[in-house]
């Protein structure tokens, strides 16, 4: 396990809590990276455990919204993010709920974009501003946000994983982690891959052009 000295001495952040503020911002930023250049219309936050118990006092609400708007942990605008979202006509709402057997600092973010699509992401803030994305659009995930990632929805087919990984290899993209899940043999499946280097538009198009692939979402690193 490699830990950077700047994981210890950092992040440079808007207070007051590395887990409840900076970690929340990073989970929000993961959503921002997922919806990328789409226009955000509304965002709903379902807060679990400690996240909903101390929402306002830790500025968790402002940090989450700031992250979804693309702000970094050190951006002083985080303090005004609720107002900024309002000015941009983005509808923001919060609710508390039990998300089950998850870390006490967990939030599900549901974003609606102007193309009529809904994107959902669940993340936990696991201490010292480190996060874990545990669910994307209903599929269990395990992303740290420290690496770029790609989520590929496809139909289960023999050799598809090898096909996807060869496209990455040919393009000099090294894989960090792979998580694959499917409903049934030959049915809908999702592969989630963390990579050392980002997946650019041309590689994304190459992945999208595969006949069994339905959608490709690339995410930049959050941290």
């Amino acid at each position: 396990m490699n830990i950077s000295m700047f994981d210890i001495l950092g992040p440079i952040m808007i207070g007051p809590s590395s887990s409840h503020t900076a970690g929340a911002q990073r989970i929000g930023k993961a959503m921002y990276n997922m919806i990328s250049d789409k226009q955000l219309v509304a965002v709903h936050f379902i807060l679990h455990g400690s996240f909903h118990l101390t929402l306002r006092g830790h500025g968790t609400d402002r940090a989450l919204v700031g992250g979804v708007l693309g702000m970094n942990a050190y951006d002083p605008q985080i303090k005004d993010s609720l107002q900024i979202a309002k000015e941009r006509g983005i509808e923001v709402s919060f609710e508390g709920a039990d998300l089950g057997d998850v870390h006490p600092n967990t939030v599900q973010i549901i974003a609606q974009t102007s193309d009529g699509k809904t994107t959902s992401l669940t993340g936990s803030s696991i201490g010292g501003a480190n996060i874990e994305i545990i669910n994307i659009n209903g599929t269990p995930a395990k992303f740290s946000g420290k690496y770029p990632a790609v989520v590929i929805d496809h139909t289960d087919r023999l050799g598809i994983i090898s096909h996807i990984t060869s496209i990455l290899a040919i393009n000099q993209i090294n894989i960090v982690t792979v998580l694959h899940s499917r409903e049934n043999k030959g049915k809908e499946a999702v592969i989630m891959i963390e990579t050392d280097t980002p997946i650019d538009a041309s590689v994304k198009r190459e992945l999208e052009s595969m006949s069994a692939v339905h959608s490709v979402v690339t995410m930049e690193r959050v941290i």
Binding site: I14, K79, A129
Partner: peptide, 13 residues
């Protein structure tokens, strides 16, 4: 605590 800028070292608290 005022949502100002700090360095977590190792945490904000």
């Amino acid at each position: 605590a005022s949502m100002g800028l700090i360095v977590a070292a190792p945490t904000a608290g």
